[in-house]
């Protein structure tokens, strides 16, 4: 990071050598890089990511504390949309495989995976504005932050890509399960197709989706900065991008470490959850 030309201080307008020296001293930037790094590590071990170089009197912890909940809320809502939608669409596509509805859904999946989220964001905003205009009152706010209503559209837009991916995953997984021997056994027992679906197919079919949930949570809560920008949401993603542009070392480092820890935490959480769904994975109890 330090190899990138420039530094956090030079971003501001011209300043005299003295002021610059003083600032460097204040933030410890006059020290050798290795020393700075050791210092950073020491602080981090105590849970302190340091203070921002570019935002007056704000510590990185402070930034995380006040903006991460926003991103997390948005991400979790997006995840709910993505999972519910993915499971539902994937199931429908599998049930009607080869038919028109399957092909339509799979077309949607390709769109969802390949079209970037800012296009959906802009489209969504456009549609919503038109709708609001048409009905003459605000059904849903187009941008901004505050209530759950503000979250709905951005969360949907944010979750679309993941939903598309999960739809495809669910579909292929179900199609595999349907041909398994134990489904034939269930038929031979005289169960009706409704029961076979809910008791046998769904639970086995959903396993890959659950596996993907951990990375998906991390991706959705941390990767939303495009959506956050378009909808003017004060999430953490925005600060990350800003910090990178301004070479705000402590913020970049702090957020990277935080995101990493969060990803690991979520994957572990999902692994534990997985044990409840798939008995083969659960910890040896005996």
């Amino acid at each position: 990071m330090h190899f990138v030309p420039g530094d956090p201080i030079s971003g501001n307008k011209a300043m005299s050598i003295e002021i610059r020296k003083n600032l460097e001293k204040k933030y410890g930037l006059d020290q050798p890089v290795l020393k700075q790094y050791l210092y950073f590590l020491g602080n981090m071990a105590q849970g302190d990511f340091g203070i921002s170089f570019t935002q007056q009197n704000r510590s990185v912890n402070d930034i995380i504390e006040s903006h991460f909940p926003v991103s997390a809320g948005l991400g979790i809502l997006a995840l709910i949309f993505a999972t519910a939608g993915g499971v539902l669409w994937g199931t429908l596509a599998a049930l009607y495989r080869g038919k028109v509805s399957d092909q339509l859904i799979m077309f949607g999946v390709i769109l969802g995976i390949s079209v970037p989220s800012f296009v959906f964001a802009a489209l969504g905003q456009f549609l919503l504005t038109e709708l609001n205009k048409y009905f003459g009152y605000t059904i849903l706010p187009v941008a901004g932050w505050g209530s759950i209503l503000h979250m709905l559209l951005p969360a949907l837009v944010l979750g679309l890509g993941t939903m598309a991916f999960l739809t495809r995953l669910m579909r292929s997984s179900l199609l595999e399960v349907v041909n398994q021997d134990y489904i034939r056994t269930a038929k031979a027992k005289g169960l009706n197709s409704f029961r076979i679906f809910f008791a046998h197919e769904l639970r086995n079919g959903i396993l890959p989706v659950v596996t993907y949930l951990g990375p998906a949570i991390a991706f959705l809560t941390t990767g939303g900065f495009v959506v956050e920008t378009v909808f003017a949401i004060p999430g953490l993603g925005r600060y990350f991008v800003q910090a990178t542009q301004q070479l705000d070392y402590t913020v970049i480092m702090g957020l990277t470490v935080f995101y990493g820890a969060f990803l690991v935490g979520m994957v572990v959480l999902v692994d534990i959850l997985y044990g409840f769904i798939d008995p083969r994975i659960s910890l040896a109890k005996s």
């Binding site: 021997d181 134990y182 056994t185 269930a186 639970r203 086995n204 396993l207 798939d278 008995p279």
Partner: peptide
């Protein structure tokens, strides 16, 4: 095939 004829998650 008894290995695959039973539902693994039930």
């Amino acid at each position: 095939d008894p290995m695959t004829s039973l539902n693994p998650t039930m």
